[in-house]
Computed example of a mutant assay.
Amino acid sequence: MIYDNHGRPINYLRLSVTDRCNLRCFYCMPEDGINYLPKKELLTYEEMFRLVKIMSDLGVSKIRITGGEPFVRRELMSFLWKISELGGVEQIHITTNGVLTAPLVPELKQIGIKSVNLSLDTLDRENFRKITRRDELPKVLDCLEQLLKHNIAVKINAVVMEGKNIDDLIPLAELSKNAPIDVRFIEEMPFNGEGNHYPTLFWTYRRILDLLKSHYPDMYKIADSPNSTSYNYQIPHYQGTIGVIAAFTRTFCGTCNRIRVTAQGILKTCLYDDGVLDIKKLMREEADDQAVTHALLHAFKHRAKDGYEAEQKRQSHAPVTESMSTIGG
């Protein structure tokens, strides 16, 4: 096990395999998209496998594959099989928008994927089209059905947006009634290629909770798992659970065990920093595994205390505006 300079364990890597996405979600990127990186600027699968091996040797046992949308990158399934065979990797999770995922679910089950986080902000087809700027809701719901059919644990990630999907929150919460689905409502963040959409964040985690409690007065708090990013609740007689993630308010930083590596090979020890180590550059300058390990440990020992400190120390001195698609969701 490795620890940062604040005594927090680091055992969870969120690895982005691409910055490309087949949706154009309001909270993630501008309507006309972002400038995608040329393929040569991305980590190769060989470089990503090497990185995962180094990380697993250091004690990182949980890997989440993200994007962009991870399944738009070719040969992803082969990569998943390969990292599943690493002895130190105990859990592999995936975050996806579900558009391309349904046909792959049986193989994901064979690989041993621990869980899937499915991005879904509304169950209304027209509202889905407005939020994502694409008409793909039937494919996403098919993915959800397949995940449940194959007994892969599933969480719904729903970003709460003023004027966009507030009327959708209760229908989404109802997904947890008759199936073991954990629905997570997330504060909107400025990682959309444009910056904050609102002068102040209206739908804070407390306001989201108040709305849920007004509809479900019997909803009660349940224990949060170690290093949980969400405050979790149970509605009596519902199979799944409800959670709220204070992603913008940043109340969970004290137990953060996660690091991120972007598709470009940039290490982020906090979502709100702008990158603390160029792993791709190290590898392509032919640094050996020991040198890469040393650089990673150095970065872990100089980690920001929380998201506010990380934001203040951004090397660019620019406010947060980059698209979540370039960071890794």
Rank of each mutant, 00 (worst) to 15 (best):
F252A: 14
I63W: 01
G195C: 11
A179C: 08
L144S: 05
E187Q: 12
L211E: 15
G329R: 02
Y36F: 15
Y36K: 01
M189N: 05
F202L: 14
K139A: 15
L137E: 03
I131L: 11
G275L: 03
P217N: 08
N257C: 10
L23N: 03
K149F: 12
E46N: 01
M189F: 02
L212V: 04
M55W: 00
H317N: 14
T44K: 09
P103K: 10
H6C: 05
N5D: 05
S78T: 08
L141T: 12
R74S: 13
K177I: 00
L144K: 04
S230L: 10
N165S: 05
A318T: 09
K280T: 01
K281L: 10
A263N: 02
M1A: 05
K62T: 14
R24S: 11
V276D: 02
R20Q: 14
V320T: 12
F202C: 11
R134D: 08
V159G: 03
S225E: 12
Q146T: 00
E107Y: 06
R50Y: 11
L282R: 07
H317K: 15
L282H: 07
H237A: 08
G163S: 01
D135S: 14
T262R: 05
S225W: 06
I156Y: 09
V140I: 14
D4Q: 01
S325C: 15
F79N: 10
T66A: 04
I279N: 07
V276I: 12
A291P: 02
R20M: 12
E187F: 12
H215G: 00
L148K: 00
I245V: 14
A263Y: 02
D274I: 06
P70V: 04
C256V: 00
V154C: 12
T66W: 00
L118G: 00
I94A: 11
S78M: 10
I222T: 11
R20W: 02
G240V: 04
R8C: 08
E285H: 09
P190L: 14
T44C: 05
P171S: 06
H237E: 14
R260D: 01
A247W: 07
L267W: 00
Y12P: 11
L43T: 06
S56L: 03
R64S: 02
G195L: 12
Y205G: 02
E136G: 01
S119E: 01
V105Y: 07
S84N: 15
Y231P: 00
M283E: 09
D224F: 01
I245C: 11
Q234N: 10
I279F: 06
D142C: 05
S115L: 11
L169D: 03
D273A: 08
L201D: 15
R133I: 06
C28F: 03
I156N: 09
Q239S: 13
Y231L: 14
N97S: 06
M324F: 03
N196H: 15
D121G: 07
G67R: 09
R206T: 13
L108R: 12
E136V: 00
E31N: 12
G254K: 13
K114M: 05
